[in-house]
């Protein structure tokens, strides 16, 4: 794959082969064409930030990668494997793809610790003691170990989102998808979540992040993908994108958000 090798060089990532490959992906919501001929390759260890105006297809793209949104056309491959249609194979593949939602979606009837151990014990059949130990390490890492026995509703939004990140990490995923992880948070809680994500990026986790946090994109992304009207308009390094965007659509978008 000389093509993707070139992209990796451009993105400045060395050694990581392609991990998530989208080819010619199309998706419709009824009449609405929400993903138009999407081609995107995400390499191992790469942090890809997807930005763009609302309704541009960013979240749909993110959700298509673990098939929470089925696509109508094209292929998505993760670690060389095409996404299975359904059933056990799909569940197995999802276990390798961590997902963090805008609205956290912690299991409301389970404690934070149970939220984190559920996947490992039920999907990977890890023993309860091992799962708990790993879960506590992760909760420690995201800074909420002291909240382990509480229920999600007893935590602040920032704490809930960090717990959700720990829940996804507990599956030891190959890639993490973040679908606007800070959009539902108060400003002061955004930082604590972004700090966790920045650390994760620094440790070499492969990440796809849909966000409006330009600071995070500048600091941690290897690649910025600008999406509008269901298309990838521009793919670039953060420096190039923020200082010297090629497309008028991106320039227009940046001028609106960066003037504040």
């Amino acid at each position: 794959m000389t093509d993707s090798g070139k992209v990796a060089q451009e993105a400045g990532v060395s050694g990581g082969g392609p991990l998530v490959v989208l080819e010619n992906v199309n998706k419709y919501f009824g009449e609405l064409h929400v993903l138009k001929d999407i081609d995107l390759t995400i390499h191992r260890g790469e942090v890809v930030v997807v930005i763009g105006p609302s309704g541009g297809g960013k979240s749909t793209l993110c959700r298509a990668i673990n098939r929470l949104e089925p696509i109508d056309d094209g292929t998505i491959r993760i670690d060389g494997q095409p996404l299975p249609e359904d059933g056990k194979e799909l569940a197995q593949l999802r276990a390798d793809v961590g997902m963090v939602f805008q609205s956290f979606n912690l299991f409301a009837h389970k404690t934070i610790l149970q939220n984190v151990t559920l996947g490992p014990t039920k999907v990977k059949k890890v023993g309860a003691a091992d799962a708990e130990q790993h879960a506590m390490e992760l909760l420690e890492r995201v800074g909420i170990a002291s909240q382990a026995e509480k229920y999600p509703a007893q935590l602040s939004g920032g704490q809930q989102q960090r717990a959700a990140i720990a829940r996804a990490l507990a599956m030891r995923p190959k890639v993490m998808l973040f679908d606007e992880p800070t959009s539902a948070l108060d400003p002061e809680m955004i930082k604590e979540v972004l700090d966790v994500m920045t650390n994760l990026a620094a440790e070499g986790m492969t990440m796809v992040v849909v966000t409006h946090e330009m600071g995070f994109a500048r600091a941690s992304a290897n690649k910025v993908v600008f999406m509008a009207d269901g298309q990838i308009i521009e793919e670039n390094t953060p420096e190039e994108f923020f200082t010297n965007a090629r497309s008028d659509r991106a320039k227009d978008f940046l001028s609106k958000i960066l003037t504040h």
Partner: peptide, 15 residues
Amino acid sequence: VPLGQAEAARSIGLT
């Protein structure tokens, strides 16, 4: 039960 609960369950690999 909010849809997000089932989506989160599927996203960690539960059938």
